[in-house]
């Protein structure tokens, strides 16, 4: 799964976290993309603000799926939303995107008993490793 957002200049950064149930997957920051592994099957991803916005995808083994994050107007605060996207849409923006490690991998690398001098390696997903997008 590739979660990405278009680059956007704003006075106040507006970021959000994509979750699946109670598991935090990625933090969607403008101008970045995040690659996360997903088991084959049906997945329901959610983002929360005033209202909940979700997306259900059927993931097949060996396939890469793209999810784009957007913002819509709200009464008090803006609402994040996630929508399915195509590879061609991601490729059009990939040169302007920076890679960001998923939350699960960042947490596991921080919890691992490694020396403090060793840099945390941004993990690449095992399943879609062959389809990892290259900016």
């Amino acid at each position: 799964m590739v979660f990405y957002r278009k680059p956007m200049i704003s006075l106040i950064p507006f970021n959000w976290i994509v979750r699946e149930g109670k598991t935090e997957i990625c933090e969607m920051v403008a101008g970045t993309y995040c690659v996360a592994a997903a088991d084959p099957g049906t997945h329901n991803y959610e983002v929360h603000s005033e209202v909940k916005n979700d997306l259900t995808l059927e993931v097949d083994a060996g396939e890469t799926y793209y999810v784009i994050g957007g913002i819509s107007m709200g009464m008090i605060v803006n609402h994040p939303n996630i929508s399915p996207a195509q590879k061609i849409q991601f490729d059009a923006l990939s040169s302007r995107l920076k890679e960001k490690a998923p939350i699960a991998d960042a947490a596991s690398s921080a919890a691992a008993p490694v020396p403090a001098a060793a840099p945390a390696t941004p993990a690449a997903a095992a399943a879609p490793a062959a389809d990892k997008p290259t900016p």
Binding site: E63, Y65, I68, G70, S72, S83, P84, A85, Q86
Partner: peptide
Amino acid sequence: AFQLAAGGESDF
């Protein structure tokens, strides 16, 4: 692996 999924354009 039916590659047909999309979201409408964002008009933010």
